[in-house]
């Protein structure tokens, strides 16, 4: 279980995260939505250790993560994929995963043997298969489609065997078809791996379709939490974010 209590982060006078208290149950799939500037990415950056909160607690299964270095937080089981796919353009999909696994096994400094190490093959192959890139494993990462690059980014997070997977806009910048392909993969991953998945998403159709539970952030605060049905009909959410279109749809 990932518990966030009274989290605060201010930049100058702006409280980007303003007393946020949230709980993500183990093996849950949760979408975080909210207008631009609501503090979603800042919130994620604090969970993954990229920036340090001013105050508050982040607990994963009871252990406080605040103040730990990024590497330590990763080792405790918080993995993340990035808004802009963060990959290695000049390596093929397979090389990327093999190299990532060897880094994860702390063999990245080894000079004495040839790459790849036999011990890394199984796990790398597993990660490639989990995101469905097995058939594209010999393609240079730079030549992958946008969606596949995002999936590769997710596979890189999976290498570290996370218990919590944070996905910052997994479908950003994609056409509708590719969006659904990526999000279906994420959904499948969640169902199969039984990990806690939290994702930021702007496309309401996707959110309402696949997320059993939703949190809405606005101006750094938690505006609402609940099931898609509850969020859709929540007057505060409609006013701040959804507008009348989804009200009608509901």
């Amino acid at each position: 279980m990932l518990e966030i209590r009274n989290l605060v982060k201010a930049f100058g006078g702006v409280r980007a995260t303003d007393d946020v208290t949230l709980t993500f149950e183990t093996a849950s799939l949760t979408a975080i939505i909210g207008p631009n500037g609501a503090g979603k990415s800042t919130f994620f950056n604090q969970l993954s250790g990229a920036i340090r909160p001013d105050s508050g607690e982040i607990r994963l299964d009871g252990q406080n993560l605040v103040g730990l270095r990024i590497g330590e937080i990763v080792r405790r089981g918080v993995g993340r994929a990035f808004q802009v796919a963060s990959i290695f353009p000049s390596l093929t999909v397979e090389e990327t995963l093999l190299a990532a696994v060897s880094a994860h096994h702390r063999h990245a400094g080894r000079l004495g043997t040839r790459f790849p190490l036999a011990s890394t093959r199984a796990h790398a192959g597993h990660c490639v298969a989990m995101v469905g890139l097995h058939d594209k494993r010999h393609i240079l990462s730079a030549n992958l489609s946008h969606g596949d690059q995002k999936l590769l980014d997710i596979a890189l997070a999976l290498v570290l065997e996370p218990r919590v997977l944070l996905l910052d806009e997994p479908t950003a910048g994609m056409g509708p078809e590719e969006r659904w392909r990526v999000i279906d993969k994420v959904h499948e991953l969640w169902e199969r791996q039984k990990m806690t998945v939290v994702f930021i998403e702007h496309d309401m159709d996707i959110v309402f379709k696949i997320a059993p539970s939703i949190r809405v952030l606005s101006y750094g605060r938690v505006l609402a939490e609940g099931t898609p049905q509850q969020i859709r009909t929540n007057p505060a959410v409609i006013e701040a974010y959804l507008g009348s279109e989804h009200e009608v749809a509901a």
Binding site: S102, R110, P116
Partner: peptide, 12 residues
Amino acid sequence: SPFGYALRMVRD
């Protein structure tokens, strides 16, 4: 070597 690939990752 694995180091050589780590070097490429750092470059990329």
